[in-house]
Design a protein around this nucleic acid. Structure first.
Lengths: 147, 147
DNA sequence: TGCATTGTAACCATTATTGTTACATCTTGT
DNA sequence: ACAAGATGTAACAATAATGGTTACAATGCA
């Protein structure tokens, strides 16, 4: 199954904070307008990003700020913040392979290291992309637009 | 969200066919016993693997056989056969980013190449593992067991 | 013809996602 | 003090995917 749109939403949110944060207050309503997603969904994601220490959200007054240099926030940080994959395991293993069958009682030994290799490849690539890349490309496309 | 257990089930199925196929007929009931999963679920997966040309299933008489050398069936082949990720896209993008917002109307340009990089990393690693690896390790663990 | 098996349809329960309304709580400005 | 604008969160609903189950027609062999 697909990775939740919470991930692309979170990156979109960071792009907005970086692009508009200096001009205006980036509230959940503002972000709901840009993403076309319900403000409560946005606030839940903001809560998860805040929980991971990536942003700060101003109660009462409103508005969102990033807590670290953009080059220090990777896609993996965001993925981990919003994804909630159970136990951090990408693959869902069938629960109770038979212990009476030689294959059934060894299938975890056989498979686990290979599943981990795949998951690590995914995470390694996620870790190699940062919000600095997003900032650079966002500015590039906005410049192209205004020509 | 996690990748469906159809994937680990499919690998388990191949391990059974390879291990027991020469001794006995590998039916959906047999596989249901080894995996501890309902035979109808097994038959659905067998249907997907058959549709991908990876196995043949004997109607009426029963039993399953692999159609290619194990080294020519990769995890990616199996993943593609059973996964049914919509449009083959790993990431679910939020559907209607606002075209009124500069970020909203460019977010796809900004993100799509990076999401593709991540998806490709996953698929590359899946492609690097084949059923020959599974056969080798299955035999290894069964040998260790019988000592 | 009888039997074991596959292929499939038709349900159901459970879970995750996304959307929505509602409201308590917080902060600042007046 | 209080009104206004935000956030945080609970509660509920709609939709979709997963995995399970029963049932049964169709198949191929003994």
């Amino acid at each position: 199954m697909q990775i939740s749109s919470r991930f692309t939403l979170a990156v979109h949110i960071f792009a907005c904070i970086d692009t508009f944060g200096s001009e205006c207050k980036v509230t959940s309503d503002f972000l709901a307008g840009s993403t076309n997603v319900n403000p409560v969904i946005i606030r839940k994601i903001l809560g998860q990003l805040k929980g991971a220490g990536l942003i700060e959200v101003a109660r009462g007054t409103g508005g969102t700020t990033v807590t670290k240099p953009l080059s220090e926030i990777s896609f993996l940080d965001i993925y981990n913040a919003v994804e909630c994959v159970e136990n951090g395991e990408l693959f869902h293993f069938h629960e109770n392979p038979s212990t009476n069958c030689p294959v059934g009682r060894n299938i975890h030994h056989i498979l686990d290291d290979k599943l981990l290799r795949v998951q690590s490849a995914l995470e390694r690539e996620l870790a190699s992309i940062t919000l600095a890349d997003i900032k650079r490309d966002t500015e590039k496309y906005l410049r192209e637009e205004s020509r």
